[in-house]
Amino acid sequence: MRAGNSKKAEIAIFFAISYGCSLIFGIIIYLGIYEEVYNISLFMMLTPAAGVALAKIRSSNNEKGIKQIHKIIIVAFCVSLFALLFRITGVIGEPLLKIFIIVGNDILSLIILLYAWMSCPRLDPSKNIKVGAKYILIYTVIMFIIVICMSFKGITFYTFFAPFASIVHFPLQCILTFGEEYGWRGYLQPLLQRRFGKRLGVIFVGVLWQIWHIPFYFPIDNWNWTVQFARFIYLPALSVAFGYVYMKTKNIWIISFMHFMTNIILTFLPDYKDTHYLPCIMILSCICFSLLFTKTYQAGVKDVYGRIS
């Protein structure tokens, strides 16, 4: 009974941090108190992992390196939060905030990546890297086909440098997409899959992931039914694809890299008003959803994750 209550408390803390920050900063944006959505979004990417870290920091789990990883995440969360609050209240200006964000993310990204590699076996970035590289390559090819179909006239030679740019920049910014993926895929996905089954569980993760983003749509012109419809299909579909690779590799860093690369590649997409936008998003979503019929999504949860915890 006590263990069950502890787990419920963990889950409550995770959702309170993730959605609480999303709601609070969404209100700040909506009221026009501070409208630099990009800066807020960088902080928000840390909140899912911070929710896990704060929920588990007092846990009796002595697995090597995990507590230290959680401490690094909490430090990153607090540094970004206070820098943002200082900016909103006028204590610091926009240039100093950008320095905090850039330098802080660079340093903490290198620290968490190197520490995970050297001292945390469960979060070792090199785990199943050959298998992960195969899925990264397949995913990259599919994404580029979609991008080319969506914006053929706008494709330039530089478009194809996105994967290389991702490789170069990821070590210095990895804490951001790791912050999302450690929460959504690393923590919430196994939890919901044990409760609802692997297929429904991973789709629920995608829906929750999309809802978490909603407060940041208000100040920009893509707050419209087309984009919302597309995203409520696309993010659950992407959750299926990321969830599939995570179950195959057990390596959250591979998913973090795929997420990072996706963010870069998607900058080449046309405006949502383009006639190719919705059809191509639907095609990409169908490709991702097709993974639900693979053996990986048919196997038992224990077979996929190796243990029930």
Rank of each mutant, 00 (worst) to 15 (best):
A165N: 09
F157M: 07
Q173R: 07
E181P: 01
L191Y: 10
L110T: 13
P163Q: 12
F161L: 13
V79R: 07
F77S: 07
M118H: 14
P125N: 14
F82H: 04
I88T: 09
I167P: 02
L114K: 12
V131N: 02
L200T: 04
D124C: 00
L172E: 04
L85R: 04
F160G: 02
P163C: 07
S151W: 06
L192H: 05
Y115S: 05
W184T: 02
I142D: 02
F160I: 02
H70W: 13
T89L: 09
F100D: 07
D124I: 08
I145E: 05
T156P: 04
I92W: 01
I72E: 07
Q173C: 04
T159L: 07
V79E: 15
G179E: 03
T140I: 08
L113M: 11
N128G: 03
I167Q: 05
I146L: 13
I74G: 05
A162I: 11
L96K: 12
F100M: 10
R194T: 03
M150E: 07
W184H: 01
K71G: 12
P95T: 12
M118Y: 11
N62Y: 13
Y187P: 00
P121C: 12
G154Q: 13
A165K: 09
Y135E: 03
G132S: 10
I145H: 04
C149W: 14
R199H: 04
Q189P: 00
L108A: 02
G154M: 07
N62D: 14
P125W: 08
P125S: 15
G93Y: 09
P190N: 04
T89H: 08
M143K: 14
F157V: 13
H70C: 02
G65Q: 05
Y182M: 11
L96S: 11
K130L: 11
Y115A: 04
P190R: 07
M150H: 00
I73D: 03
R185I: 08
C78S: 15
N105I: 14
V91I: 12
P190F: 03
M150S: 09
L84N: 01
I99L: 12
D124T: 04
F152V: 13
